[in-house]
Design a protein around this nucleic acid. Structure first.
Lengths: 184, 184
DNA sequence: ATAGTGATTTGATGGTTTTCTAATCATTCT
DNA sequence: AGAATGATTAGAAAACCATCAAATCACTAT
């Protein structure tokens, strides 16, 4: 059910979270500590921890289905034992998300843009520098980087986004996205 | 507040549990993954994860007080960064309880004994072998290991615990606690 | 000083999880 | 087969925790 050979190069983040949740419980930690010393069975553990067999069973079953412990029958008892392979990894292995990082801070940009643009037009220039840069960069996409524009052209394009083309134009230059050129 | 130099040889089990609980939450894992790439601040993280700044703050504060992250002010922002030392340990370091193990399976014995003895007398011989051994061992404490007893003496001592000294005596021999000797 | 901006606290809500009791299941021994 | 014993499941109560909206705090810049 669970690959215990050697980490399959990318257990989903879900599985890691599941393991961490399993470990983050006092009762289960105590059970694991008992099993570190010797294999044991439900009733005995229940006695040692002063808890109901039902409760211990609940925890053991949970840990078994995650591959943390194994169990096998022996006479009257279900003997539970530790799967020690699990615990060798360093901690950062468990918090690191290997999955193809889909959005680094792309999502943040989208958020900002959708907040300041409505129907393709700029509602208001953000006061924060970081946000302002994002907004300006978006407007800059309408320009061809290889080409030069005269002032009238620039103003027309910016006007599609906002009335006040002067401020925007100034910002674009301030951000280093656009350079002034001596008029020919 | 928290020793970040090098594990102080025995953080209480409580502290370990606290750390594990911190890690066992999807949102916090995501925050940590973001901070693994670069330091960041509340609002930005909130945007990236599509959550409220209040929520992110709640998590960051929690992690800060456990020494998992650090924060410092920079201009408008509270910059949070990872305390990477924490994550070097292998996992078993976090589940192992270093504290002086107070009761290995002593507690289990006490449970069994208090169940089968009342006012110093044996109510009933347990059916289970393991429990029977515990009970028999308790009775055996009344004998001096260095000395030999004749049958009458043995029966008298056992009689203090139970009417049926024959069964008990047989069990003691079966358990290897007492040996028969040719009568002199 | 005051306005603006991000961080934090507070209180309420909803969801998850541990724990128990009681009932049922599975196995062993007579 | 039937009795005994340990393990498991089902259902319910209680504790815990993440999240949000709204209010407040702390700092910066004009």
């Amino acid at each position: 059910m669970v690959d215990s050979t050697s980490s399959t190069r990318s257990e989903s983040i879900k599985q890691k979270l599941e393991l961490l949740k399993l470990l983050a419980d006092e009762t289960r930690l105590e059970i694991l500590n008992i099993l570190m010393h010797e294999d044991s069975y439900v009733e005995k553990i229940a006695c040692e921890l002063s808890l109901t067999p039902a409760t211990i069973c609940y925890h053991l079953k949970k840990m078994e289905s995650a591959g943390v412990v194994n169990c096998s029958r022996s006479q009257f008892y279900m003997i539970y034992s530790l799967n020690r392979d699990i615990f060798d990894k360093p901690l950062y292995e468990l918090i690191k998300n290997d999955e193809p990082t889909p959005t680094t801070d792309e999502k943040y940009k989208q958020q900002v843009l959708s907040h300041f643009f409505k129907y393709g037009r700029l509602i208001q220039l953000p006061a924060q520098r970081k946000k302002r840069e994002i907004v300006i960069a978006e407007i800059a996409k309408s320009f061809d980087g290889d080409r030069t524009y005269d002032e009238k052209e620039v103003n027309e394009i910016i006007h599609n986004f906002h009335e006040d083309h002067c401020t925007i134009r100034r910002e674009m230059i301030a951000c280093g996205i656009m350079a002034r050129e001596k008029e020919t």
